[in-house]
Design a binder for these strands. Structure first.
Lengths: 199, 199, 199, 199
DNA sequence: TATGAATGAGCCTTCATTCAT
DNA sequence: TATGAATGAAGGCTCATTCAT
């Protein structure tokens, strides 16, 4: 009879899952290898059979998050839209995709988006990307030329950040729902009065 | 014979300042008592002359932030406005005050707003408060009745959070500047087209 | 189906060679089984197919050295010489043989002569043997009767030890060369003045 | 009542002594901090109160040996002698001093002369120094011009090495005694016949 | 003959905290 | 008010060795 998980890949996978969960729950430094291996039904040396070090697993997880996110974002670059409908629709779909991605694996999202020094970088890159797109649309006349798109991009990321942690990862809202609210808010704000734009 | 600066209150104050800075820089767990006392020109036992434990200093700092914030927010409750001008103006002034507060002591803000488990609570409370105010204004007809003000409040806090850490604490923007951008974004969004509200 | 080289004796031999090299290079404790098997193209359990333990391989190597050395030394016992020419010649040839042996397999020499607790014993035995021979020649009148042959023997071994590690194993000198120098030094010293022996 | 050794310098000194003894007895890697502190009547963290790391103590000990040895050797440079008596006497006194130094603190000698990678260097430097001196005397005509003084120096160090570990550190012989034997051996060898030098 | 998988035992190092002065 | 000295409790990592196949 095989020992439980006498299969390397399976053990590794289990360790990775548990590790992600622990890192997400407690942060990098508070996570103990002893807890990880114990939850994975193994002993400490086994951990080092599959990973170089504590830092290495963490990096692997961060990298996984980053690369998946990169693929998602690159696949959803906003080309210049044609009319307002399109712009809105595109934003809606991109955000839905993003929230769907962020909600898919809550441990990984926690790690890549909120824990560790790289999270700051990830979000900065996201801001930069969004800013580029917004500026393009702004040049095309869809958005008020006076807006500081860097600030807008920062705000959007702040919103995504908070909604992800408070609404998405807690299961209170769906990606579509969140995307709809965000689009609505960012497109038209909450006032019932039209903006007094510089004319 | 007293040592230079061998004044209890002064030593305590110095420890508190250094501790705040270390917590802000490195987070709770990465901050070492040895570093704090060393920077404060004292030795480890002295630390325990003024504070019960590492956790105690941290809590004291968090509490300081929370109480100051509480006073600020209570002093700036939005009473029902009278017209759009007022609503906008009030929001603008409240946000300016909030950013001013958050920018006043960056170490304390870091601690109370971003580090430690209480930060989550602080922000949730802020969300709740904002939500109340928004709902009141909504009832008064200033905002679209269909809007989910809980989500809007969450978004506002997310925006405040991010702008604080990325623009305010880095010295890139002033409180007024940030408040203006936020008000503009939240009131009217970025689209040049008016919202198609349900009629 | 056998794997390439899946011949027990061959694997064992490979392990032995690599082990000798690692022990020689890094010493007993710093040598890791994992390194040995990896260099031998095998896995850790295979090691235990051929050797009881880490200590066992080491002992086997030490024993190999000791037995070979023993054979060499026993075959070269100095019988009482007849005249000075003979004594000198005999010493020269014995030393040449010894250096040749020590230079033959540098890893084994390193292990048996310099590493591990047995090396001390090996050299002590060598001292004892040399001492016997020197004393015999001394009784026969070839050497000054006042000399403490135990010390002389110790010196000779010290010289052999150092020349082996610094000149022989580094390839700087040949066995013959070294033997000649040692004989010259031990027979007549370096002074140009004759010794003032007690008469 | 003071705790045993509630004096920093004393604790440090005790640790250093015990550490030296352990390193000398078991070598670097086999020496355990736990053993050192336990023998010094302390606990593990205390060790790190006085030393950076295990490696650091070791280095400190090695350095102590090296610097003391350096001072000794520099103070006893052989100036060109005047006649054979002088040369012999000088050699005798230098060797006596050296053996006295090597016998003074056997643990330190073990560490600096036999353990650790630096021991090899120490001895190489010693060879170089001796070689210089011998060559000078050789140029002055005291020694046979045909001798390879590098080899002679190597032999001398080999002899010192062995006599130190086997006779001096074991308490069997005194520095003077050993020096006398070495001088006699190196000056005139053991043969009763005079050397047939090239004429 | 060979290996994939796993582990018991152990070692170095760190840090918040305390005791005696 | 202040500190020199010390420690309990942990945590990351390594290595020789074994089990089941």
């Amino acid at each position: 009879m095989r020992k439980k998980g006498a299969n390397g890949q399976e053990s590794r996978a289990r360790l990775l899952i548990v590790a992600a969960n622990e890192f997400a729950k407690s942060g990098y430094h508070q996570t103990k290898i002893s807890t990880i291996v114990s939850r994975a039904g193994l002993t400490q040396p086994s951990f080092y059979l599959y990973f170089e070090s504590k830092e290495a697993v963490f990096k692997e997880l961060v990298e996984k998050f980053r690369s998946e996110l990169k693929i998602l974002l690159e696949g959803s670059r906003l080309e210049s839209g044609i009319d307002e409908e399109h712009v809105t629709g595109r934003l809606q779909s991109v955000l839905t995709g993003l929230f769907a991605f962020l909600g898919k694996d809550s441990d990984l999202t926690q790690i890549g988006f909120f824990i560790g020094d790289d999270a700051v970088i990830v979000k900065s890159e996201m801001v930069a990307m969004i800013e580029q797109n917004l500026k393009a649309e702004q040049r095309d006349g869809y958005f008020d030329g006076d807006l500081d798109m860097h600030i807008v991009a920062e705000c959007l990321v702040g919103v995504i950040e908070r909604l992800t942690s408070q609404q998405l990862l807690t299961g209170k809202r769906t990606p579509e729902d969140l995307a709809r609210h965000v689009v609505s808010l960012f497109m038209h704000g909450i006032s019932i009065y039209p903006a007094k734009r510089a004319t």
